[in-house]
Every structure is written in C-alpha cells, then in structure tokens.
Design a protein around this nucleic acid. Sequence first.
RNA 1: GCGGACGUGGCGGAAUGGUAGACGCAAGGGACUUAAAAUCCCUUGGGAGUAAUCCCGUCCGGGUUCGAGUCCCGGCGUCCGCACCA
Length: 894
Amino acid sequence: MPPDSNKNERYNARAAEARWQKTWDQRGIYATQNSDPRPKYYVLEMFPYPSGRIHMGHVRNYTMGDVVARTKRAQGFAVLHPMGWDAFGMPAENAAIDRKVHPKEWTYDNIAAMKKQLQSMGLSLDWAREIATCDPSYYKHQQKMFLDFLKAGLVERKQSKVNWDPVDHTVLANEQVIDGRGWRSGAEVEQRELTQWFFKISDYSEDLLAALDRLDRWPEKVRLMQKNWIGKSEGLTLRFMLDPNSLTNLSAPNQENELEIFTTRPDTLFGAKFMALSPDHPLSLAAAAKNPKLATFIAECKKMGTAQAEIDTAEKLGFDTGIKAIHPFDPNWKLPVYVANFILMEYGTGAIFGCPAHDQRDLDFVNKYGLGNTPVVCPDGQDPKTFVITTTAYDGDGRMINSRFLDGMSIEEAKEEVAKRLERETRPLPTPPPQAGEGRVGVAQRQVNYRLRDWGISRQRYWGCPIPIIHCEKCGVVGVPEKDLPVTLPEDVSFDRPGNPLDRHPTWKNVTCPTCHGPARRETDTMDTFVDSSWYFIRFTDPWNAKAPTDAKVANAWMPVDQYIGGIEHAILHLLYSRFFTRAMHKTGHVGMDEPFAGLFTQGMVVHETYRSKSGDWVEPANVKIEGMGDARRATLAATGEPIEIGSIEKMSKSKKNTIDPDDIIAAYGADTARWFMLSDSPPERDVIWTEEGVQGAWRFVQRLWRLVGEIADIKAPATRPAVFSEQALVVRKAAHRALNNVSDDIARLRFNRCVAHIYECANALSDAIGAVETAPGPDLAWALRESGDILVALFHPMMPHLAEECWQALGHKTLVATEAWPVVEPDLLVENTITLPVQINGKKRADVTVPREAGETEIKAAVLALDAVKRALDGKSPKKVIVVPQRIVNVVA
RNA sequence: GCGGACGUGGCGGAAUGGUAGACGCAAGGGACUUAAAAUCCCUUGGGAGUAAUCCCGUCCGGGUUCGAGUCCCGGCGUCCGCACCA
C-alpha cells in the first residue's frame, strides 16, 4: 500500500482504533453516573473467568453486549455496562500445582492481560466499576450475606456425597473424574459422605418455578430447561408394611416395620414386581449390618461417581435383601425388597416400588433378575388379552387392565382412586412413635415433590471465598462476627501436596471462639464459585460501597438487568442460583426485587474445523495450509508439507487446538473486522463457524465502507434540506431510511446477522446511486447522499465503533458518533405507492400483479383474473375461489 | 439414561402459515493493469427447452390447509446440559 497516496488511502485500523480508544477514554464517555436522571438501561454480559487470554467466544459475547449498550446510549438511556472477573476457581489451583505459581499472582496477572485484550476491542465499558470476586473487598460482603442467610434460615449443614480420590486424598469435581478414575492419580473414585454447607434453594422451588412464566424476555428453551430441572411432580408417599417374618436378620430390633416410598404412578400399583432401596437408605444399611454380601454390594455402588449421567447409564444392579413388603391392597401379596444402584437417596424417600411394564429402568431391572412384568395400562386400540411388554416399557396413555377395582379406568381416574382409598386407611406410625401429633396417619398421602436439590456450596479447596464460620467444641457452629470480616485467605500456602492447603495450614484455622473465647477452629471449606457469580450483577450498581454488599436504593434503581447475554451452558445452574440468591438478598433486606434478569439472551459458540496430523496429534489452524475447494480441499502442514487430515467442526478448545487467538485477528485486521465478522452470517443464538474467508470478507467490507464514505464526503451538498426530491434522490433516501428502520428493529430483537445484511443493502444502494451519477449530483441528490451517509455511519457505529468515528470525522462532523443520538426515521419514506403481490395458482407461484397500495379486494381480483398466466390456467372456466391476503399474496384456486 | 435444541444451494444463512434461497462467502466469466494485488461488472439450487415456459427441490415418511421450510404425528442424524468446570 503506498502510504503517501492520500485520496485512496486504505483505512488503517490499527492506528485509528488506538486513537479512538484513547479519545473515548480521555473524555470518559462510557463512565456511568448513578445520579443520571435519564431512564436506565442495564446491559450485562456474563463476566469471564480470567484464564489468561480472551477467546473468540468472549469476542462474540462482548460484541453483542456492546452493540446493545451503544445503541441504547444513542437512544437516550443512562446505560450501565460494567465488566469484572469471575476470579476464584480450580484452574488457579491447578496452575499452582503444575507451574508453582501462587493462585493470586496467577489470577491477577491473567486479569491484567485479559483487560488489555478487552480494551483493544473498543468495548464501551465502564471500567471504573471493575470488580474481581477474589478481592477481599468483594468477598467480604459475600461472607456477610452468608451470615445473613444463616440467620434467616436459608443455610443449613447436612451430609452429602463427594467424589473421593483415595490416592490423592482429595475431593474431585465431576470433570476430574474420567471413566470412574481420578484424573491425576488414576485411582478408582469412591463416594464419600461429608458434612457440608447448603443454601436452601429448595425453599423456593415453587416460587422459582411459578415466576418463570413472568420472564417473558427469556428464551422459551431456557425456561423449559429450568422448569424440568426444578422437576415438580405430584404423587403419593405410600407406606408399605414389611413382612415381620422377613425382618429377623436386621441389626436393630425391628425398628423398621414399614417402608415409605414416593411414587408419581400409584395407578400402576397392581403392576408392582419389586421394591427398591437406595444403597444409602437406612433399611439398606440395617440389612447390610448382618449381611456381608449386601455390605459388599453397597460398597461397590459407592465406587460409582456422583454424576447423574453416570448413575443413569450404569448397568442396573440390585441385591435382594430377603425382606418382603406387603402390597397395600392385598395382605397376601409379597414383594421382594432390593437394594438398587439407580435409586437416589436425595429424591423422594430413597425408595420406590417397581412397575416394570411402565418404566424402562424397572423393566431393565426385572429382565436382569427374572422378576417378570404385568402390564396394567393398555394403549387404546390394543387388545388387553394380547398386550405384552418385553423389552420396551409403555409409558403412554391408556386404560387400566389387570388391576382389579381399577380396571377400565383412565390413568388419572386410577391415580385418584388409589389415593382416595389409601388416604382413608390409617395405621399407627412406625416405631419409635412420632414425636408429635396423632398416632394414626393415612397409609398414603398426596405429596408434591421437586427434583431440585439444595445447593451444596462447600468446596474443599483453597482458591475460593472462605466460609465465615468457626467450629467450637463448646458452642458448636458459630458465625464469624461482622467486625472480623472479611475472613481473608492466608497467602503462605503450599501446593506441593494434594488436598486443601487451608486445612493443613499451620496456624490459619486455629482461632478463639467469638462466644466463649475458648480454642476453636475455622471452617476450612470455601464457597462454590457459583456463589460469587450469583450477585456480581448487583454489586456492579454500587461497587465502591465498603460498608455493605449494596445500597438498596441504588440497586433497586438499576436492577433488574435489562439485557443479560451469555452462553447457553449457563441456562440452568448459574441462572437458577442467581435467581435464588436475589430472592435471598431480598429476604435479608439487601435489595427489593426477586428476579435479577428481565431479559436474557443465550448466544451460540464459536466453532472451527479441526486438523490432525498422521501421528494423530491435533494441529493449530495457524500451522495448516489449505488448498483446493469442496471435496478437493486438502490440508498440509505449512512448515513441512506433511498431509493433514481435515476433521469435524467443533467448539474451539485448547485440547483440540482449533482456537484462533483474538489478539492475532485484531493485530492483522483490527477489532472492527473481528466484531463485524462475529455478528455476520450466523444467527446469534446459533453456533458460528470461524473461517478465514469470512474474516477477509468482513475486512473487505470495512475498506469498502471507508471508500464509500470518502466518496460521499467529497460531495458538495446544500446546507438546507431541499423542498423536493427527484426520483433518484428518493431512491437513496428510501434505502437509508428502510435500513434505519430495519436495523433499529433488529438490534432491539438482537438479530445482529440481519442488521449486517441490512447495512450491506444500504451500502449497496448508496454505491449504486453514486455509480449512476455521471457528472456531479444535483443539490437534492447531493443532500440525500450526505444524509444517507450520516445514517449509514450511525447504523454501523454500534458494531464497528472505531471505523464509525473515523468516517464521522471524514464526513466533517466535529462531534463523536459515540455520543450522537440515534437517527430518526421518516415514516413516509417507508411506504410505496404501489405494491407487487405474488399470484399463486393452486398454491404455486405463477405471476405477479402490481396494484395501487390502497387497492381493494375486488380491484385486485379483477387485475389478477386479467393476467395471461391466470387466463391460461383457467382455460375459460371461472375459478373455484380467489383468496386475497391483503399486502401479502393472491391465490387462485382453479 | 434423562432433559433441551438444531437439520434450507458448493458454504454461513434469509423467509409474522403466503414469491424458498435476502445478505454474505466461494466459484466461473469479463473490465482495468506490462503483470499481480486491489477494485468494478455479469452469472451461479437441480433438470428439460431456441424461447415463452414447465418439472423437481427446505433430513426421511405420513397428516392438517386454498397454501407448509414454518403447524401436527412418527423416524433418522448432529449438538448441548445433567447439580464439585466456569
């Protein structure tokens, strides 16, 4: 590129971007004042984990948020658009182990590096509100809220299972368990029970479920996923008597004389073939005490990991305890009681009755143990006499069969009948006697059950927010007094051994009890990092507050977040925890609302082709040379020419080495090009494939816009708006105003790929108009072109802010386009005087008809019937029907 | 296993139940140039036909409708989440 040529100079993104970033920064135009009286708009992207480098997923996510922020700012809102760091978590500890670097140092270095990268993207962020969750000034308030929640009854301690690595003596995350073995040690993982802290999210099950209906700016699929996660089900708890003759081998003398189960299918009670207990069920343990084989079986079950997918896909295994349960409707009907590996203690009562014909898991189980099945629901249209179940359970609708007094009923009627009969029948509660109330209770009780479990927040790790609790032998569990907060992490820790460094720190955990001043020890567990991210969006409203997590007045003014943008992978946990946490903060007086996110958008991933060498190693795209097209596409290693296999398109990941570094792209093409490409083509909720061609296309368009604006800037236009416009000038103005209208609408609905298309169309129209001018445009066309140029620049500003500033300046404006108001559309320019309707004959398009905009149905019909194509198709006959859909289409039924 | 999505040209995709393929990419042809790059113009779902025009076509099989990529039922395929990754 000749740098001396002035007129046709290329847009120099690198120089321009640095310059405009400096200007914005110096003028402080993205700092938001809490005192701003304009209507508020809070746009937030999910804050990143400081892994060290931003990735393309961040570029996509933050560009989308920035488009919304810039647009809303132009539309007159006080926009809050902050950024921070989800800075606690396991990778920092892994780095400490692998690279001997302190988690704190590692984290803050990463933050500094990533902040620089984000700043190079030209995001309109208010960096004055930056927070890092690992900073004591942040987690101090989190500890305060933990104590507030504790006082409010929202926290409890209970037992829960963890993945235990018996070699490393450490707790493993599910992702650290690979094929049932610890990722570092390779040892078989065991389940262990630990006493842990829980937030009582299940207190809000019904509220979290019911409120989903009001989140009308959330994706339907996320609401559905949360609904299923909460998993409300209505059923019965049902007390089966145990056959006393079968209980002789139990440890305790006959404490368990009955077994309580939960079922959502009481209608299938006559199809029951067995009972199944969780390996953790008290009755299982009682039976195992005198039965070594059963004890071994239970121990085997504990070798299974705690992940749900693993439990569900494992082979269904059971062990017959020898205990018999008595059918509630037939004292002579005895059911074998098994301990089974697929029954969860956490759900229902930890025990079920198995009806194999109508539940696949139960069917797999009986087929393995030869217990048989009896269908009790017969689908409509099936003959009950011949209806049999072999390997596939039937869980659909139908009529009751083989079920005595239920026969012929619908499923719903049968459920109701069973409930009614068993509710009426009462029996004394099992021994030992109940502590309160009457001695007799219905054999069955209707019960609403939720799948949602309480939120276990204890982590046996160093790099997390310390749980502000002191354990005293005399006083028990005592909260750290507020004046002693924050409980800070000690910095002199070692990672040379596995396990929690806090637990083996020589002094940190030794404290005096705040109540009795005797010796006591600190809680050494830290909080789940999901706690940190469950309120950061509220902290952003008042991040400087040293006294309290937030100022309710300020938080209530900014909250809820109007538009939250992040990955679909957070659809359930992060969002549900945040909804709970906001409610808990409401209950403890920190804020005045329940729902944190009024609008939610979940964007898709950035994916890329994968490359593999002959030896099976993954190869980075930067080292691959691609030649040829379509099927003839071949890849070679750029350095050696070794052939490379082109693999499937997958999520960018370090392990498959198919990542593209945003830094490289920004250095080569500039941030605007990267931003533009991330918004082009793919709908934002879907995955976008990163391609070299796509980036180059975006880069060419950047240059094209720059040239186009240069041409418009050269046009001399009258200062005042002409009174009349020629047809030519109107075409230009209509194109610009149509684009303005479409882009405004599509940004509001976050349909960025369509915005991109409309901006292309607008640019094409302006290029065409300029190309058609032979000498110099007349004053009306000149004015129209200048007007349209201004509109075009304003429209792409949210997406390519640096280029827009450069263009705005070139067009002679002295202001910043970043602080300009959004252009105002002239509605008259959006309507045409004539409309062209497609004409179908029998549903197939055969012709067009052009009619005046205000033409009525009879007028349109007449015009349609006069068309050659219609006459030909009708062949002299009159049509059966003519359907005129106003403004849309005409269909002639011949 | 359970739950959730998605499936349209060579590719990414567009299409309130109403003209399938907007817009972009790639490709082919042309202009400019000593040449290349850059830029500009034209063509581009498949098939038949000189042409007008016609036939086929939105993963597969059914259905509803004047009309289905879109709605319903049943398959197939791909992807995501599953509670200690964030």
